[in-house]
């Protein structure tokens, strides 16, 4: 078993690295919401009444951060960090499995949230010009969500199938 010792770190370290990687999806959400927020401020500066409408669009890129948080939580539960009984013993390869399963949501989360932020910003400008087209603007931005959800699904399935 001990033949697979990557850089001599313990399995627990890799498991935590996995949780951290999943939580990095928040980077993308922060950038995405930031881009959309700038656009929203631009619209609201000319027409404060549109605040409610643009806020919905601005919030869309936030979901990737939540997905990352979800996977990070599952990992922490799985390794027993949230149970109060201390971390369970896991081998290096088990830790590496967990790290691998966190990769989809961590990476896809970052890039899809940035892309979604741009689409949301464009949707916000669309609302600025044609307030009645809010739903269409939301659909365009929500299309990007698909790929974040797919990555979440894969991360979830991978983690669920790891047994100690």
């Amino acid at each position: 078993m001990e033949s697979l010792t990557l850089f001599n770190f313990s399995g627990q370290f890799y498991a935590l690295l996995g949780a951290a990687l999943a939580a990095l999806a928040g980077i993308g959400s922060a950038i995405g919401i930031g881009i959309a927020g700038e656009a929203a401020a631009g619209v609201v500066s000319e027409d404060p009444n549109k605040f409610g409408q643009v806020l919905v669009l601005q919030a869309l890129p936030g979901t990737q951060g939540i997905y990352g948080l979800l996977i990070a939580f599952i990992i922490l539960l799985k390794v027993g960090l949230l149970g109060g009984d201390g971390m369970v013993d896991i081998t290096v390869s088990q830790g590496a499995y967990i790290l691998a399963s966190a990769a989809p949501i961590g990476l896809v989360g970052i890039f899809s949230a940035i892309a979604q932020g741009k689409a949301a910003a464009a949707g916000i400008m669309l609302v600025g010009k044609k307030p009645s087209e809010l739903a269409k603007g939301m659909i365009f931005a929500a299309m990007v969500e698909t790929y974040a959800v797919l990555a979440l699904l894969i991360s979830f399935l991978m983690i669920n199938s790891i047994t100690f």
Partner: peptide, 20 residues
């Protein structure tokens, strides 16, 4: 991600000004 600089606030404001 493109390397072009982006200006979400400015463009959104301009889009609103275009209404005038």
């Amino acid at each position: 991600m493109g390397r072009e600089k982006i200006y979400p606030y400015a463009v959104a404001r301009i889009r609103m000004l275009e209404n005038s």
